[in-house]
Computed example of a mutant assay.
Amino acid sequence: MLSCNRLLAALLLTAAPVGSYLSTSHAVAAEITGAGSSFAAPIYQAWGDKAKSSTGISLNYQSVGSSAGQNLVTAGTVDFGASDAPMAPEKLASASLYQFPTVMGGIVPIVNVPGIASSQLKLSGPVLAEIYLGTISNWNDPKIVALNPGVSLPDLAIAPVHRADGSGTSFVFTSYLTKVSPAWKDAVGAATSVQWPGGAGARGNDGVGASVRATEGGIGYVEYAYARRNGIPTALLQDKAGEFVTPDLASFSAAAAAADWDHASHFAVDLLDGAGKGAWPIMSATFVLVPTAPKDAARGAAVWKFFDYSFRTGDATAKSLDYVALPESVKMKVGAEYPGHK
């Protein structure tokens, strides 16, 4: 148990249960508000449902995109913001925010190609970049055919779909394309919002998924759970070793296992295009942002109480939703450095 538990225990007026990362209390009615990442929305909503009966804390979470989440917590409109794009250290300092990860997960290409089932189509990072650059515009392009021997690819225009809102999912996706494609790096780069060379925009992971499902020839990128729950076909991706990897919990876990948390500033670990065997190439942690000096100390304490409880009890829920839980050592470090606990 961490020695810094005493301050939070005094704030919550309770004793810490055995096994907590920091002290938490028995159920006391409270409501906290969060907003941001649609990538993280399924896990926060599931954790919220579980925590309400056990802690008395009710979570109101709005899936509005990572950029909005950063803006709302900076403005003091919500108790915590959520973002898949880690905030830069200088911005964290100027906004007086503490950033920590909650879970990790995979971003996957989704497709709507007649006759192509899930995990049948093979793509590489450079080919994916060319599709979004518009230099590959048809599903029977020789570069796609070369990756898919024996697969009958139709003479059909590719219809790329991207996020229209400021999105951490877009940040992760464009960061991956920037890492594997010099052409993408030079022309577009990585950000929560970029100047897309073409294609159609949709809001949120669910919007991108719905648009691809409705568009013959469509391709998009979403958090894996959205694709799995909605039965949208996913593509395999070529990893750093040249092997084609299926998006699933095993390949996500392989990517997470290679993460270098010890050298990650403000927990902003790089999980993209890792060298681990069978590692899914487009992986990300998702982050929470909280004020280092919240205006309402009780609400600030309730936010940590919610995440502390979820860290201790929520790994199985995360796994059921196809996320990868944080290592125990990272959870402990998050708690040790949480605002006001030093």
Rank of each mutant, 00 (worst) to 15 (best):
D248V: 10
A235F: 08
V245E: 00
G276C: 04
P281Y: 09
E243G: 09
I219Q: 03
G276Y: 03
G274W: 02
V208R: 04
Y221K: 01
A302H: 06
H266E: 12
A202S: 12
Y226M: 04
A279Y: 01
V194K: 06
L177S: 08
G209R: 13
P197N: 10
A187M: 07
G274M: 04
V194G: 01
A191T: 06
A298E: 07
A259Y: 02
G274C: 00
E216L: 12
D248G: 12
G276Q: 14
L289V: 10
G204S: 12
F244S: 02
P233A: 11
L271D: 00
D186E: 13
I232H: 02
G220H: 07
A225F: 11
S253F: 02
D248A: 13
G242Y: 03
A298G: 10
N205I: 08
Y221S: 13
P294Y: 10
A268H: 04
I282V: 15
W261E: 02
D270H: 11
A255C: 14
D239Q: 08
P281I: 12
P182G: 09
A285I: 07
L237S: 01
P294S: 11
R228L: 13
V212C: 08
A227D: 03
S265D: 12
R229Q: 14
A191F: 09
G300Y: 06
A187C: 00
T215W: 04
E243L: 10
H263W: 00
Y224M: 15
G207N: 05
P197S: 11
A258G: 14
G209A: 14
S170A: 15
T246A: 13
A259S: 09
W184P: 00
D270K: 10
A268K: 07
G207W: 05
M283S: 14
A200V: 14
A279P: 01
V245M: 03
G189M: 09
